[in-house]
């Protein structure tokens, strides 16, 4: 358990960080950001929570056995988008065939959003997985302080 001030600050910041991650995720077409950054920010919110309140309370929200599923699902969403465009008769990841004859390039926009969701899910799950793997181990007893 962290210091009281840290815990109160983390509680205040937790929801805005998640909201910011979603903003970065879905605003990637218009401004800086995208799936990679959003996934990292999303994972950072939970890592911050785990640092302040302990790993156990974080793992009650996101159980560790969900994370490999999230990692694989993100990659599968990305690849699935590619195979979907192939089944529609285009090239791999050729988003134009999703919504052909569109003057506003709707197919490209749908493809980019879907692919970015896959990236965000894979990156967020992987970052949390790595953190869980490191932080879940019992440290050796140390003779010197920090």
């Amino acid at each position: 358990m962290g210091h009281l001030i840290l815990r109160v600050t983390i509680k205040l910041l937790f929801a805005p960080i998640l909201l910011f991650a979603l903003y970065v995720q879905f605003h990637g077409d218009y401004g800086p950001g995208g799936g990679f950054q959003a996934g990292v920010i999303f994972a950072a919110a939970f890592i911050l929570h785990a640092l302040g309140f302990g790993l156990g309370s974080c793992q009650r929200v996101i159980p560790p056995n969900w994370l490999p599923v999230g990692m694989a699902l993100g990659v599968l969403i990305y690849m699935g988008c590619g195979f979907y465009t192939m089944f529609l008769g285009g090239n791999f990841l050729d988003y134009d065939v999703i919504q052909p004859d569109s003057t506003h390039h709707a197919g490209q926009h749908i493809g980019i959003v879907v692919v970015e969701i896959g990236v965000g899910l894979a990156v967020a799950a992987t970052m949390l997985q790595i953190f869980y793997a490191f932080a879940g181990r019992e440290p050796e007893p140390m003779d010197d302080a920090w």
Binding site: G28, D29, Y30, G31, P32, G34, L93, Y95, H104, H105, Q108, H109, G111, I112, V115, E116
Partner: peptide, 15 residues
């Protein structure tokens, strides 16, 4: 003309 998103970085990266 190809993709029509304002952020060219995203266009290059994702498309």
């Amino acid at each position: 003309t190809d993709i029509d998103v304002p952020n060219i970085v995203t266009a290059v990266l994702a498309s």
